[in-house]
């Protein structure tokens, strides 16, 4: 499914959460489909089930997953989808703005990508520090 990297600065539960989200956005997990049980995912990822449970809880709280009593955890139906397309659109627009600015300043692709990478890293760091 996806890998957990302990060397990553991200806590494992966050990596799991993002992993699930990625899989859903990529379409590997469709709405209404069951996600692996806490037990199974913990075993296959070789992580503490508490960690998986925490990730699942957050996703459930965010409405990405739903729990069906006695049956398990499933990907929630539709509600997140409009958010998904809205998000993609915002991302697409922001990218277009930046690309335009870079071209206007005469930067090469590599230069633009490099700047993007360092800013991304720095902001993510700052964001997490304040989190």
């Amino acid at each position: 499914m996806f890998d957990i990297n302990p060397a990553n600065a991200s806590p494992i539960w966050l990596q799991i959460e993002e992993g699930i989200r990625r899989m859903i956005s990529l379409g590997s997990l469709g709405p209404g489909e069951p996600v692996p049980s806490v037990r199974d995912l913990a075993k296959s990822l070789r992580v503490n089930p508490n960690t998986v449970a925490r990730a699942y809880q957050r996703l459930t709280d965010a409405g990405v997953l739903t729990v069906k009593r006695g049956e398990g955890t499933y990907v929630a139906d539709s509600p997140s989808q409009p958010k998904k397309s809205e998000r993609n659109e915002k991302l697409h627009n922001a990218a277009t703005t930046y690309a335009g600015a870079a071209i206007a300043l005469g930067a090469s692709f590599d230069e633009a990508a490099g700047e993007l990478e360092s800013s991304y890293s720095r902001l993510v760091r700052e964001h997490r520090r304040k989190a």
Binding site: S37, V38, R39, A42, K43, R46, V47, N48, P49, N50
Partner: peptide, 14 residues
Amino acid sequence: RKSLFEEVIAELAD
């Protein structure tokens, strides 16, 4: 080693 941790994780979960 893998199987040992699997057993432990299963116990933790169950």
